[in-house]
Structures are given as C-alpha cells and as structure tokens.
Design a protein around this nucleic acid. Structure first.
Length: 735
DNA sequence: AAATCAACGCTTTTT
DNA sequence: GCGTTGATTT
C-alpha cells in the first residue's frame, strides 16, 4: 500500500494554482472513484496530468501504482510528456499507454498463461481482412455475399463486446450461423499461425486475468489508481477490463464527455458514463464546464446544437471570452464554388498574418477533401491531409515487414504469401494453391510445407527457382542473428528483390516507394527498445514489429510544416484551431444519408455530436458552408442545407453573399455593384472588358442566369468565344 | 505467370 | 471520380 508522505502546503501550489475551482476539485479529490465530465476545451488533459502529479507528490502514491489509459498513441505520448515535466523527473514504473498497448504488454509478459506462442504477432486491420478473406474462400462461400469486409467488421464487433463464438446466439438466422463458422475458422487460423488482432489483444488480456486469479491479484495490488481518458469511447471489453482490474480496491478516475461520443460504430458505448456511477460504488461526478478555447458565439452555437440531443448527462459550457466574430455561412453553388470561397478566405487570412497551420478544413467524409486540395494547390497554399495511408500501412513497407514477420514467426502464412507474391518471382497462383492444400492436409505452415515440397522435388520450372531463392534468402537472414536490425532489413531488401522492384517502379511512377524502404531501414536504425519491453524480455525484432502494428506512424505530410490542416471531423477530435471551416453541410452529407435514412434517432444524435465536436474545434472564427449542387460518386446531387445549420440560432450566423451577381438583363442592373465578401468584384455587364487567366482578354457579349447560376458569354481576342460561369472563371474586370 | 482492362462500390477508422 | 478488385488476355 502506498505510504503517505508529509508535505507542506507550499509543495502543492504548482499543482493547483493555475486551475479553476472545478479542475482543482477533480485534481485534489479525496480517495474514491471519480467521473469527470469534461466539456470540449475545458482542460481535460491538464486535469488528468495534474491528478497524476497530485497522487505522486501529495498522496505519496508510487508511480509504480498508477496506470493511465488513453485511446491514441499521441494522447499517451502527450500525457507522459506533461507528467514528466510536472513531476520534473522521468515517470519510471508509471504505466501510461493505449488500451491496446497496455494489453499487448500484458500478453508479452504472460504469453504462456494467455495461451499464446512466445512469438505471437499482431495483425493489423489490413492483415486481418486478408486472413478473413482467406477463411471465407477456404470455406467455399460466395464471396459476393460474404465479404471479407463484413466478416472483419462482425468479428471485431463480437470481440469488442467480449463475445467468443460460443457466446453468440445466431438463432435461426442462417447468415449469422455462417458468419459464426467464419468466426470460428478465423480464430483457429489465428491460433495456428500465432496471430492476434487488435480486438483480440484486449479480449485476451481480459481473459488472461479471469483465468489466472493470482495474476489478476498481482496487478490489482500493484495498480491502486487507474486513470482513463476519453471514457465515452470505451467499448464493452475495455470497460470490463477496467472493472476487472479495479476490483474492489482500485480507484478509478474516469474523464470523458458524452457529447463527444462519436465512435459507437466502432463498439464504443456512451452508456458506460452512466454505468460508471452504478458500477463503481461511491463514485462522484465533477463537471468541467468552463471553456478556455472558443469565443462565446462559437460556444453558444455548439450548446444550441447539442441541446437537441436527449438523454445527455447534462453540461453547459460557458466562457469568459467575448463574443468575437460571428459565424459565417456560405451557400455555395457547387463544390468547386465552395472550395474557391474557402481557399479565398484562407488566402486573405494568411495575408493578414494568420499562419496556415492555424487553419483547418473539416469535413464529414474523406471524399470531400479533393476539391479543397485542388484549389489549395492551384494557389500554392501549403496543406496537409490527415487520414491517408500511414507509413507502416504502405504496401512496400508491409512487403518488407512480411519478411521480418516470417523471421520472427515462421507460422505466419499471410506473411509468407506476401513475401512470395512481391516482387513477382515465378511462383503463381497454382503453385501457391498446391502448397495451401498440402499445408492444410498436413496441418503445417506454408513455409514448412514449401521447404518440404522443394526438397521433395514437387515444385518445377520457374516456380522452383523462385521459391528456392526465397528460401535461401530467408535462411541467410535467419543466420544474421548477431547483426543489428537495420542491417538485416537492408540485406532483406536486397535478397528479396524488393528494393530493385520498387526502384524500377519509381522511375515510371515518380513515386517515393523506394525511398520509403530506405526510411524503414533508418527507422530500424534509430529504433530503441523501450525499458518496459526490455524488462519484459522482448527482443528487438518482435518489439519493432509490434511497434509497427500498434503505432502505424504518422499520415502523409510533415507534421511540423506550417500548412493548412485538412481532416475528417472524427480525426479532429481533441484538436483545436483558431480558424475552422466546416464544409459540406448538406443533409445527406452531414448528417450522412445513412443516419437520415435509417430513421434511427441514435444515429442522428451521433451525427449531432459530431457536429458539436466540429464546432468546438474553433477558437476564434468558424465558417460553415454547403453546396447546393455537388458531384458525388460521379453524378450530380442536389442537397438541402444541413438541419444542423438550422439548429444554430440565426443571430449567431452571418450569411456571406460572395458572388458578383448578374441578375437581370437590363444594363443598369447589370452595372449594379453587388456586395462581395471575398473579392471586390466590380460589376460586369455587356461590353465590359475582362481578363481570364487562360484565355486572355475579352469582351462580354452576353450573359444569362442570376446568382450562382450566372454565366457570361465572352468573346476573346483570338476570336473565340466562351460561356463562363462567373463564380468559377475568376475574371478580372478591366473596364 | 504477369500485365492489361473493365466492373464495382463507396461514412467515419484512435488501435 | 477514383482506387481496388477480378477477369481477360498474351
């Protein structure tokens, strides 16, 4: 049990001084369970880190006895860093990590008790899908009816709910029965190959504790204090994991915001916030409602929107900040007009000394980023899109990792297939299928089967030499036990032919694939085994592979470059920007069609929470936009403004009338100068001389339509004439 | 066995 | 509108 050490009041001032009363109450809470309802921008991370420091410094709790859980590696890293600077020393023995990272550590430490091979490997989402596909195919199912995607989704959903195949009741549903068989076969394949997917990490470590009370007891004794971040995002298995570890003596400090629960489709259950008060006796609730981020206008809009949801725990954000700028709303004619407007505003802001990195464009679905990217490129504004392929998920990197996985775990059939397939080495589908059936019959791995088949002379022709080369290369790499990891990878890239393969490709595709392989080598060179991993007796190679799976690495683009940030609303959770553009606000886009169609109020409420998350990302200025017409999946769609727009009190909004309008066919009206927010566009009329970036100078000889529809007919100097949409053409009026 | 071409299908995605 | 998958071709 932790011993209390005497402290004077002086010691604690730096932990409480810069906190508001509610934050202080949470940080200095007496022993017991606590649920902190932390609104957006209310200083949640600060409270968590100060609580840890408070426990360590004031309550005299050993860091050793504290476990802090987050959902992302980024959040974990930030928490660790802030704790270290608060405590002014390394946080030795303190466990801070993601649910998955901590569960993984437990399984590495207790692989035997968990029923895993010591060499078990982590299956990422892509690997998992491939394996499910293999299972479906081997079962001879119709792959158009039973897709790997759906299978993976179902299996994950079951595991997230803590259900093994035996726990699922398929009832009389034949489809579900089939899926259950797929689930069983998938589990068997994982067991045979020593593979563990993300959901399995959690479920397996939970079962590890259940099956080994002494082990559970050990960890219960050790971790007297559990701190959970983003509690509203916990799934059933994670919640059970926390409950089990806490037992009757562990104190849980849970921080979350039910209004920011946006991952129910990934198994997260907001109800856990309510259940917490029921399941953890004596739990108290503290609300952090003062917002330090946004103007009161932005906050009022957020509050108004979220207040439409039912069954909230209840929380009203307030701020001492002033009203600030109104929320601008722009009704674009179409998605190009929308992009043009947004980028123009961004350029203005940048010209007025806003840094690009302080600006974010947020959208519901990734598909929306394209137009904004195009417009940013054409104006030379640096930008970064989040949510692309991450480093360790890239095909060429995974190709190389497959070899490492085979070295670490020869039973990994997926890795073998990947290594065989790329680069092409004369071993085709037929050869592989023969090996597969042989391996199935013999109950052995593909690699072992291949070695035998080659020795027995069963493989002929090109396949023989190709397979022979591969096995020889593997043998050589296996012999490099004493070499550094990066040397092995470097050699691997040569022997496998991957480097040559991707270098040859690069010439055609102007791609950076070969460079990524070099990057992999240098990542391995600078990879350091963490103290925890070393203590757990984990080798460099398995640790590197786990790192690759659990921390897929940053998305594309340089994090530190000063650029405009583009991302989905989901990706924006936890971030903040002085200037935020929330785009694509049409019913059917946001809220999404599915949420609207299915008529499930829960779905719509989650969309609304997503909207709340989006609005509350903005510090200073929020701009909303929607397009009346949008090309979606190749065809035109006409949308109505999002219902969320109407949920914001109109007095907080300011309509932007951006377009120079050509509204009537009479000259005086044509000459009328219209209000233009984003460019001081003089009037355009018959006979006006204009200049176009591509076509040069010309004279307006006609026009039609009004508002966004306005088009002008221009005869250019070369004699050609064109109809141009005013909103796009960016005409410069010369007189 | 590998390259080329048509057909599909498609929110969100911390790990 | 695009990228991925699969069927077809050589």
């Amino acid at each position: 049990m932790p011993t209390r050490i005497a402290t004077s009041p002086m010691d604690i001032s730096h932990l409480l001084d810069d906190l508001n009363p509610a934050q202080r109450e949470a940080v200095a809470a007496p022993p017991g369970h606590l649920l902190v309802l932390a609104g957006a921008g209310s200083g949640k991370t600060r409270v968590l880190t100060h609580r840890i420091a408070w426990l360590a410094e004031v309550e005299g709790v050993w860091p050793h006895a504290i476990l802090a859980v987050t959902f992302t590696n980024k959040a974990a890293a930030e928490m660790r860093g802030r704790c270290e600077s608060l405590l002014k020393r390394p946080t030795r023995g303190l466990w801070i990590g993601t649910f998955h990272g901590l569960a993984h550590r437990l399984l590495r430490l207790h692989w035997h008790e968990a029923g895993l091979p010591e060499t078990f490997q982590i299956l990422d989402a892509d690997d998992q899908q491939r394996l499910v596909k293999r299972v479906i195919r081997d079962a001879g199912l119709d792959e158009s009816r039973f897709t790997a995607q759906q299978g993976g989704w179902l299996i994950n959903a079951w595991k997230d709910e803590g259900k093994r195949p035996d726990d699922v009741d398929a009832g009389g549903n034949p489809n579900l029965r089939t899926w259950l068989e797929v689930y069983r076969s998938y589990e068997e394949a994982c067991r045979r190959q020593g593979l563990v997917d993300f959901a399995e990490l959690l479920l397996r470590s939970h079962e590890l504790w259940l099956a080994h009370p002494a082990l559970l007891d050990h960890y219960r004794q050790r971790f007297g204090h559990l701190l959970i971040d983003e509690f509203q995002d916990t799934n059933t298995t994670q919640y059970a994991w926390v409950r089990l570890l806490a037992g009757s003596s562990g104190q849980v400090f849970a921080v979350g915001d039910d209004d920011q629960s946006i991952y129910s489709w990934r198994g997260a259950r907001v109800e856990h916030m309510q259940h917490f008060l029921r399941d953890f006796p004596g739990a108290r609730t503290i609300r952090l409602e003062q917002n330090y981020r946004s103007s009161s206008t932005i906050l009022d809009a957020a509050n108004a929107v979220i207040s439409r949801n039912e069954g909230r725990l209840g929380k009203a954000l307030w701020t001492e900040a002033g009203r600030g700028l109104p929320i601008a709303v722009y009704a674009a004619w179409d998605e190009r007009d929308e992009a043009r407007f947004v980028i123009e505003r961004i350029r203005r802001a940048v010209a007025a000394d806003t840094r690009p990195s302080e600006i974010a464009i947020l959208y519901r679905a990734n598909a929306l980023s394209r137009n904004f990217e195009q417009e940013l490129i054409s104006h030379g504004v640096p930008y970064r899109v989040y949510g692309g392929l991450r480093f360790f998920e890239r095909a060429e990197v995974k190709d190389a990792l497959a070899w490492l996985r085979l070295l670490a775990n020869p039973a990994d059939d997926g890795a073998f297939e990947r290594a065989v397939a790329t680069p092409p080495r004369g071993v085709g589908e037929k050869t592989i299928e023969d090996l597969r059936s042989q391996a199935r019959d013999g109950g052995r791995s593909l690699l072992a089967t291949a070695i035998d088949a080659l020795a027995a002379g069963q493989v002929k022709g090109r396949a023989r030499s190709g397979l022979g080369d591969l096995l020889a290369a593997l043998a050589e790499l296996r012999g490099m036990q004493d070499s550094r990891l990066h040397e092995r990878i470097d050699r691997l890239l040569e022997l496998s032919g991957l480097r040559a393969h991707y270098e040859a490709q690069s010439r055609h595709e102007a791609d950076s694939r070969a460079a990524n392989l070099d990057e992999l080598v240098s990542l391995a060179r600078s990879f350091v085994l963490s103290a925890e991993d070393e203590a757990a007796g984990i080798g460099e190679l398995p640790a590197f592979l786990s790192h690759a799976a659990l921390e897929a690495g940053e998305g594309q683009g340089e994090a530190w470059q000063d650029c405009v940030q583009l991302m989905t609303l989901h990706a924006a959770k936890g971030l903040e920007f002085p200037m935020v553009f929330l785009v694509g606000l049409e019913d059917g886009m946001f809220p999404s069609q599915r949420a609207v169609n299915e008529g499930d109020p829960g779905k719509l409420e989650e969309e609304r929470r997503l909207c709340y998350v989006g609005i509350t990302r903005a510090r200073r200025q929020l701009t909303l936009s929607y397009a009346e017409k949008r090309y979606l999946r190749g065809s035109e769609t006409f949308g109505r403004p999002s219902r969320f727009l109407t949920e914001i009190p109109p007095e907080l909004l300011e309509d932007v009338r951006p377009r120079a309008q050509v509204s009537a066919p009479t000259l005086p009206q044509m000459r009328q100068r219209m209000v233009s927010d984003w460019e001081d566009q003089p009037a355009i009329g018959l006979g006006t001389t204009v200049s176009h970036a591509k076509f040069g100078e010309g004279v307006v000889i006609g026009f039609e339509g009004s508002g966004a529809h306005a088009r002008v007919h221009v005869r250019f100097e070369d004699g050609s004439s064109k109809w141009l949409v005013l909103a796009y053409a960016n005409l410069v009026v010369l007189g």
